[in-house]
Design a protein around this nucleic acid. Structure first.
Lengths: 205, 205, 205, 205
DNA sequence: TATGAATGAGCTTTCATTCAT
DNA sequence: AATGAATGAAAGCTCATTCAT
């Protein structure tokens, strides 16, 4: 009985925390860090302001927790895509596809997430910036490893350093995401991953 | 005599405005919109706070003016690069090169500028966003036109829509700028524009 | 059996109460009323916050209880000193000595206690002030009675009203305590009570 | 003309500052540091809260300024009393008298002032405590010098160290002030300074 | 009965903006 | 025309207290 009681409390805590993060997510996505007040988050999540501060020691802390959680969620999904078996091309193809799936229908989240990861955030929050950057770099190195393996296997020509190719591919995906974000009627993230891969893979000239 | 008197006044006004924008540029670049106060800008530009408000009706207005001016300056420089005579490849090569030159030694400005143009700014300033977006779109269409002309001339294979290619090239350049921004010791914007163009031009597989 | 059961409970209650008061004493002595939170007291005394409120209906109440207990303890010790047999001079001598002994090694407590009794506390707590004042007045009247008895017995000249003399002597003792408190290396509460008594007893001119 | 213009502004600034300090004085005297909010002070002094912060960088700063100003005012008045010509007894007599005059009708101020100077304040404000203590010590040394000069001149017997005598006399005065403060109907600060001096001067036994 | 999660009033402080001079 | 003193709404955060478990 006892462990269940504890577990119920812990489960409730996690639920509450998630409700707070969800409210924060919605508000930060819509208005950005500086245009959201702790009172708003409290109101939206239907907790008292003091309760918010029991879970997150300050506004910055709450924001960091949210961004890191988003980062975790996205990188985990993308990791799965490149970890599944297959040759290098299949892996890259799945990666491009996963990127589209992960963010589909999440316009607001893209804005929030990329503001921290690809934008030029001015939040200067101790740790967040470096942490996020390190995660991204680590992930890009895994993409680079796929290019490298493909080059070693003679499957790819070495038209650039593998890490550079990884950066290029990732940015290309982001570019398409932004294209869709800015004008959802006109542009969409390509259904067929090859549309993106071909820009790198196929010869232009 | 009279027109000269007016002209002197007007010239002085423009000088003053520029001093204000220069101070704002420096401060916003360093700390971001929300971490700079109007008083700081007034102090740095050595004007009274009231004078600041004579030139810009509020903080947002000042910020918008600054961003639009930066945008003007950069797009003008890039336009020159693609307007000079030469074939399509030469134009793109000059464009890639110009992008590097325009931002070289301007790390802080990149952060400020891309926060608005490529990042996911949350400033939600009426007009700014759309204005910047339209300018960028207009410019990208001119790059697209170069691709299209190259395709028509049989110089390029049509591996994708010209506008898509333009977006891809532009984002690739930005990706390299960010790479340098994040780690200036390790990465630099390529001296040779072909390093970037090849990613699109040369066949990978 | 029953009364014993009750008695055990009651004894436990008293022990718990004392533990709370001890924790409060330590914290209030160190940081003062306004810089100590009920949570701190709960944590230090290892009780839940709710349990604290079972014993003391609010922070003020807890503080009052503590101060009155300190007052009790000190006045009891001083009372013993003046109740022991002996002539008036012996009694005063023992009083001065007891005052030193009661507070020796209790710098923090002096600060806390005198903040309420001799300082100019601003806590404005209903009852506390008057209660403490009454106790002190009552005690001073007992000192005054010693002076009066000495005067009647012809042992003392009546250089002032007995109550005034009592106030003077008590304050002199306090002054020496503070001297020690402020600069323990330079000053100490006189080992020999006559050093204090002489200021009043011996003629200066 | 110019210096007058400046002087008017400066005069106004000083007036405003004084109004703020007066409001703060009244409120702090009545309720103590922690029971007065900056909004209250702003309201009472009829300034906007922001204006308050233009003059004092924070609440602590305002409080310190007030206490130091009171200290200045009181010590200046007392200094004058002991600086006027006369022998040692006359000086001490004037000092005792001045102490009564300085605080007459200022019950609330006594509370506030002595809370910081003679009480056991827990405010722990960087600098204030030590500053006040040093001032008091310096002043007591000047009183001590009077005693010493009297002893050297053979006018006083040396019944104790001069500094100890100074502390004793000062505390005696304070004791009478408090007596009056606590019970204005029953006690008053002695009209005749000798009533206080005699306690030290006249032999009791 | 003891617990501690939850509450929200109220605090200090900042800063965009106005307007009398 | 230029100034900068004055404003006050609104922010982040704390903590005494309550009450369902």
């Amino acid at each position: 009985m006892e462990p269940k009681a504890i577990s119920r409390r812990e489960r409730q805590k996690i639920t509450q925390r998630n409700e707070m993060l969800a409210a924060a997510h919605e508000l930060f996505s819509e208005k950005g860090y500086h245009n959201v007040s702790m009172h708003e988050i409290a109101a939206k999540s239907e907790f008292a302001i003091g309760t918010l501060y029991k879970f997150f020691s300050n506004k910055e802390d709450l924001y960091k927790a949210l961004i890191l959680e988003l980062s975790d969620r996205f990188l985990t999904a993308l990791s799965k895509a490149i970890e599944a078996p297959g040759d290098e091309i299949e892996k890259l193809r799945r990666y491009v596809q996963a990127k589209g799936e992960v963010f589909r229908d999440k316009a607001a989240t893209i804005r929030l997430y990329f503001a921290e990861t690809r934008g030029a955030s001015f939040h200067n929050m101790a740790g967040l910036d470096q942490n996020i950057r390190n995660r991204r770099e680590g992930f890009l190195e895994r993409i680079a490893a796929i290019f490298e393996s493909g080059i070693r296997a003679g499957r790819f020509h070495q038209i650039a350093e593998p890490y550079i190719l990884a950066v290029a591919l990732d940015n290309l995906c982001n570019a398409f995401l932004f294209l869709w974000l800015e004008n959802p009627e006109k542009h969409s993230y390509p259904e067929n991953p090859d549309a993106i891969l071909n820009i790198i893979f196929k010869e232009l000239i």
